[in-house]
Design a protein around this nucleic acid. Structure first.
Lengths: 157, 157
DNA sequence: CGTTACCTATGTAAGACACCTATACTCAGG
DNA sequence: CCTGAGTATAGGTGTCTTACATAGGTAACG
């Protein structure tokens, strides 16, 4: 166990200030399928393309290769060893029909996810900006979004 | 180990057809923080509100209560036992200043995530609909998005 | 020949969630 | 009074996905 590591997804960057380190969050699979739909590729190349697509620092190679193997086991992608080209051997992947179908399903799912995020953000903004001149019914502030420390974790009365 | 369970996130609903069962995907925490920013509430009530907000079937109570306890340990929410009201005792939660700050951070993170999803979907749609009359340079089809089974998982030549 | 870049893997641990079970209190009905 | 349904809170356990670390090959270059 390594205790000198920061929490994975949230970290305090100052008093009362937070940074949420968003992870790829189940993006790796659909992103890889998309890249393969755009053209055949090999692992290392996919990693570079993923970085550009996701705008994330460094994609983890280990997990990418594992993902590709798993997808192949399920028949969603197919691979051959590159014959031409000198240099180290590359395993070149391409999408199968099943893989394309899965990509379609992912697209639908991601659209739904995006909508849910939109809903959430919409409600957040409605809360955060109650300074509109029109629709503020005078004295109906949503609630002081903050209570001073009244922790009370003890047992029930 | 239970082997009679379906895969968590993808399931085949027909030949060549997939359904992606999207999970809450790290939505629970920001959603709970948002609901508490809108007003104090207790676990059971939050579960119902979450179902409406996320449009998901049945929220898991166990994980929700665990999340609330964890948030309280970090000082992001504060709870008191409801005194008034008849019926079983309720632990009423409210957002602290720190919790509100975290919600802000989550909002920024979710916006970024939504953008990434948008980028991905944009490229997907560009692939899926290459039937535009204007920008098809004649014979540059992106690639047949499918290769017939040429699996070849054996060792390297 | 050693170093570096390219390319493909495996090992290990942590975090978040699904699914299941347990507890306790309240209230209505027989 | 006992029972059962509804409300409310909580713990156990397995699995999935990811982060971080390590390892082993090929080839080009000085």
């Amino acid at each position: 166990m390594r205790a000198d590591r920061q929490p994975r997804c949230r970290c305090r960057v100052g008093p009362g200030s937070f940074e949420v380190r968003a992870r790829i969050e189940r993006f790796a699979e659909p992103a890889v399928l998309l890249l393969l739909a755009e053209g055949e590729s090999h692992g290392y190349q996919l990693a570079e393309d993923l970085e550009a697509l996701l705008d994330e620092g460094r994609v983890d190679f280990g997990n990418l290769y594992r993902l590709l193997r798993a997808l192949e086991e399920e028949g969603l992608v197919a691979s051959t060893w590159s014959e031409e080209a000198p240099g180290p051997q590359k395993r070149v992947y391409g999408l199968t029909g099943e893989g394309a179908a899965l990509l379609d399903a992912w697209a639908a799912s991601l659209r739904a996810r995006s909508e849910r995020i939109g809903t959430l953000l919409g409600r957040y903004e409605a809360l955060a900006a109650p300074a509109r001149p029109r629709d503020t019914p005078a004295g109906e502030a949503v609630q002081p979004p903050d209570l001073p420390d009244n922790h009370e974790q003890g047992g029930a009365p």
